[in-house]
């Protein structure tokens, strides 16, 4: 007898649940917006006041807010790692993000970084979700770890080769660019031949999208390293581009003099 009223009310109840879910998601979006704007106290307040919806998202958001306030205490590290490991056990994007963040914990947030563990987690993520953005970003971090943090390989050429091998697995152009730039710069650090370095720098520059002083540095650097390696035409092309594209650079005179030295016009 009571079944009919319940049936009548069920859609209403579902509607309420859906709207509650919407409200929860909306509240979480506000929290994420605050975190993205570096407003962590506000985010924390919003999160504590938000209606509790998707528990996984809420737990992950709590950890994310905590990671936004380094340094992380030993106690928090253990707690965050436990939560992230649990969340990473899933098979969705949230799980991929959790695994990525767990690797970040070991790589950069631990009091004593565990680069080997971080590398293993990044690679595990790349293995299980190769196309995920978090896996792709993780491969860039693996590259940085191999370039500078791991003790082996001790031979610079082998070290660089192990990072170059990652490039084929990175399909997102911006991330590939970031890693190529770092391979080029690390090559300079390890005093590799300029002919090995230049292709990486040229590729990173061609990808575009870099910001700050980096694009200007890169065009100038390719010009100068080309000049030093005897690639005069290439050097001139990059120097001239530098003068055309960066009219406010304080190194214009330096470049103009280099062009004069090469037997060209200053190209103002």
């Amino acid at each position: 007898m009571k079944f009919a009223p319940i049936c009548r009310r069920l859609p209403l109840a579902l509607l309420w649940l859906v709207s509650l879910q919407g409200a929860t998601e909306e509240a979480l979006v506000r929290v994420w917006r605050d975190v993205a704007d570096s407003k962590l106290p506000e985010a924390e307040l919003q999160l504590s006041a938000a209606p509790k919806g998707d528990a996984r998202k809420v737990r992950l958001t709590e950890v994310v807010i905590g990671m936004g306030r380094p340094p992380i205490s030993r106690q928090d590290f253990d707690q965050y790692q436990r939560v992230l490991a649990e969340l990473a056990a899933g098979r969705d994007e949230l799980a991929d993000l959790a695994l990525y963040l767990e690797a970040r914990l070991f790589q950069v947030h631990a009091v004593s970084p565990d680069f080997a563990q971080a590398e293993a987690l990044y690679l595990a993520l790349a293995e299980r979700s190769a196309g995920s953005h978090w896996a792709q970003l993780g491969l860039v971090k693996v590259g940085l770890i191999r370039l500078y943090a791991l003790a082996t390989p001790t031979v610079p050429a082998d070290r660089l080769a192990s990072v170059e091998a990652l490039l084929g697995r990175i399909t997102e152009p911006a991330l590939k660019r970031d890693l190529q730039l770092q391979i080029g710069w690390a090559g300079l650090h390890y005093r590799r031949p300029l002919d090995e370095i230049l292709p990486h720098l040229i590729a990173a520059e061609a990808a575009g999208g870099l910001m700050g002083i980096t694009p200007e540095n890169l065009v100038l650097q390719i010009g100068e390293l080309s000049f030093r390696s005897g690639k005069t035409a290439q050097a001139r092309a990059y120097f001239e581009r530098f003068l055309a594209d960066y009219p406010t650079s304080i190194r214009r005179y330096n470049v103009e003099q280099r062009l004069v030295g090469m037997g060209g016009q200053p190209g103002r």
């Binding site: 998601e25 979480l28 979006v29 929290v31 994420w32 917006r33 975190v35 993205a36 570096s38 962590l40 985010a43 998202k57 992950l60 958001t61 994310v64 807010i65 990671m67 936004g68 306030r69 380094p70 340094p71 994007e93 949230l94 993000l97 963040l101 970040r104 950069v108 947030h109 953005h133 978090w134 970003l137």
Partner: peptide
Amino acid sequence: LPQDARIAALGLGISA
């Protein structure tokens, strides 16, 4: 270091 939180938050936001 604090950028991890911002990057993750943007990633979560993009999906929503």
